[in-house]
């Protein structure tokens, strides 16, 4: 883990150049350009709004479209960083076989690439908030820290996933399924408040309620999405009880994920 930070600094120009390439290549020769990045969350919000009109989801004082768009902004950033990170090593076979530089550059590049799209998503979110007459607040200063948390969570999956994917391409095939499963386990369509009410107030799980809530919040995205909605929409600080289990899990697993990646790295060129 100690090697990551100096490497990151030494190869910052390379990461920046590769990320810029990813963005440039994706939107060259396309008329709408980077606006395509916005389309996915917008379509999902429309679907969720229609869904909500049928099943009814209590969004509290926050207008539902903003609440769910806010959740999708950070969720999609995490999901695409993780899945592109996992594919990044195999996707750069030609470079891996020809030129040496530390291979963590590839997953990192995927994350940095997605940061660009996240920024656009945040601009749209600000526009939506203005439309609904919601004022910005000081808690928004948490946003960089929360984005960093999302990066760490995505890298935890990306490092080990990318290394395994070199040996078994099953990983890349299975990942979209797992990630969409994870979305339903995360408070994207519904606010975390509903889960908390069910388990901690109504004790729907009986004696197991407290444990079930802990398990639910072990998912880093549960606490992250809730905190992101808190600081942008509700003007509240992150809820420590919701965010800590996932944060501890992420910080505990990330070093192992990275070490596995570094150990496998030496054989990438032979196996890929």
């Amino acid at each position: 883990m100690t090697g990551l930070i100096p490497n990151l600094w030494q190869y910052r120009e390379l990461v920046a150049a590769l990320a810029w390439k990813n963005v440039a290549v994706r939107y060259k020769q396309s008329y709408m350009g980077i606006l395509w990045a916005v389309l996915k969350p917008v379509v999902l919000v429309i679907i969720f709004v229609i869904l909500r009109s049928i099943v009814g989801i209590d969004s509290g004082t926050i207008p539902y479209p903003v609440l769910t768009y806010c959740a999708l902004t950070i969720w999609i950033f995490f999901q695409e960083s993780a899945s592109e990170g996992v594919n990044s090593v195999v996707g750069n076979t030609n470079l891996i076989r020809k030129i040496y530089f530390p291979r963590e550059v590839f997953p990192l590049t995927s994350v940095v690439t997605k940061l660009v799209e996240l920024c656009i998503g945040l601009v749209i979110l600000a526009g939506l908030m203005a439309w609904y007459g919601m004022a910005p607040n000081w808690q928004m200063l948490w946003i960089p820290a929360l984005v960093l948390y999302a990066i760490l969570a995505a890298l935890t999956i990306a490092f080990v996933g990318a290394a395994l994917n070199v040996y078994y391409r099953d990983i890349a095939a299975a990942l979209p399924v797992l990630l969409s499963l994870m979305m339903y386990m995360s408070p994207v369509i519904y606010p975390l408040q509903l889960v908390r009410d069910k388990l901690l107030v109504q004790h729907a799980g009986g004696d197991w309620s407290q444990a079930l809530y802990l398990i639910f919040t072990l998912n880093p995205l549960a606490g992250l999405i809730d905190a992101f909605q808190n600081v942008t929409l509700r003007g509240l600080p992150p809820d420590a009880e919701a965010i800590l289990p996932g944060l501890v899990l992420t910080l505990g697993l990330l070093p192992f994920s990275y070490l596995y990646f570094k150990r496998a790295e030496a054989y990438f060129a032979d196996v890929i």
């Binding site: 390439k21 440039a24 290549v25 030609n94």
Partner: peptide, 8 residues
Amino acid sequence: GAGLVADL
């Protein structure tokens, strides 16, 4: 030319 990108 390893790493040359056709679209750029």
